[in-house]
Design a protein around this nucleic acid. Structure first.
Lengths: 240, 240
DNA sequence: CCCACGCAACTACCTGTGTTAACTCGATGC
DNA sequence: GCATCGAGTTAACACAGGTAGTTGCGTGGG
């Protein structure tokens, strides 16, 4: 009696299906299996931890709205953000064999998310190759984004790192439909931008002011607009 | 007629089996399937590229001996190494859906490796859940190591980054049986250490000299020994 | 044999970023 | 209506690390 009627595209799990089909379509039976997963929608406030480093029993979650970030801490208490998550992103993905979360994930804003017991996801991945592959894709993309971040941190100066972060955020928010013409409301305080770029909040401020003075970005309160680093002229001509 | 006799543990593919069983054993049939994979052993000299960023048709490889690294380039030609690979590590792992290599991989020394066509691996992962999961594990670990690297680059000073690199290399070489009492022959020039840590070769040199003067490391030519950052006293007592 | 070359080692000088310490402004709460 | 707090902003100063050179050693090639 559930069957096809459950294909309601407003259901939170429909969004997970869409996400997992980003790179390759899933068999209809796999789609149904995902929609039938036991899931729970939660609202959580800003600054709450979703996954703790070293913790064993976490669930797979998909952000429906809001922002979160993953970070590591050093023994002296310094924090480094290693990834930002926007609506649509999937957190806590792991195979069944590596039970320990490597880093902490916490919310940057109030969020809504769907939570699925890890055992249910693992069982699906075990029996359905296409779903396993889609989850695997998430891990690969995660690694790729992390590598890009390493390049930024290692070889760009403050200006370049802040710009790269703004560009990445803009691009990801655009994909999630959260921007208006390359303008978005920054989910990060300047302190948090510093934690993401390996700078101090003071220097982040200096850098943002400089970027604004140069006309590369526009800022009104928390709303930031990227004015430069549009595709270079040649590429713009192609799409115009 | 092949069957069990192929379980010769000297065969290069036996090492791949061992690697993929690091976290969970594989069914015997899966082990056999891996051993039956079409594979090709190659020797390649130092400084050769194994995978090119943006290239489509690369194979899955396992290093049998030697060292390699993955890196990204900036438009101004600066290079940032995002990962070092030692004997036993698997390169070019990806699901079937994301056909493009995100970064370049090249050798740091003369290497021996087994090369397996990607299509053969993908077919195995498609039909054998345990193998898919083992490959997925490799991607997850890759992402985890990248995140640790981000923390180092963002929040540690030169001393901390060089130490962290030496510790990681020592640990991984130890797992591969390449160390004698925390001492290993560095596969990286100081310039390459700089590319990995986001420093210049000049400053890497300063830092290494300082670490040696402080008695944290010992160096004879390219052979480096970690003297400090052994497990802290409490942990040592447990294992003693 | 000598030359070229890559790599390590070292120096002097310069600059980007961290540090510290103000001050402003709004929001929140009592 | 005042105290409090978090976020952003600015300034002065210090230092880690970059830049640009030179030296010297070892190795491999002609």
């Amino acid at each position: 009696m559930i069957g096809d009627l459950m294909m309601d595209s407003n259901a939170p799990l429909a969004r997970l299906v869409r996400r997992l089909e980003r790179y390759a379509p899933l068999p209809a039976a796999d789609r149904q299996a995902i929609l039938a997963l036991p899931a729970q929608v939660e609202r959580i406030g800003r600054g709450r931890r979703l996954i703790d480093e070293g913790q064993q029993d976490h669930a797979v979650m998909q952000l429906l709205s809001g922002y979160a970030c993953r970070y590591g801490l050093l023994s002296d208490g310094q924090r480094q953000i290693t990834g930002v998550f926007v609506a649509g992103d999937v957190l806590g993905v792991r195979s069944g064999d590596l039970p320990i979360a490597a880093q902490t994930v916490s919310t940057l804003s109030d969020v809504e998310l769907v939570k699925i017991p890890h055992t249910a996801i693992a069982a699906l991945a075990e029996s359905r190759a296409a779903i396993a592959r889609a989850l695997w894709n998430e891990s690969i993309l995660d690694a790729n984004m992390a590598c890009d971040w390493i390049v930024s941190l290692g070889r760009r100066d403050a200006r370049g790192r802040v710009l790269a972060l703004l560009q990445e955020l803009t691009a990801r928010c655009r994909d999630a439909g959260l921007t208006i013409r390359d303008s978005l409301i920054l989910p990060l305080t300047q302190e948090e931008i510093g934690d993401a770029t390996g700078l101090t909040s003071v220097h982040v401020n200096r850098t943002l002011m400089a970027l604004q003075a140069e006309g590369l970005i526009d800022r009104v309160g928390r709303r930031v607009t990227l004015l430069a680093n549009r595709p270079p002229a040649a590429a713009r001509m192609l799409s115009a």
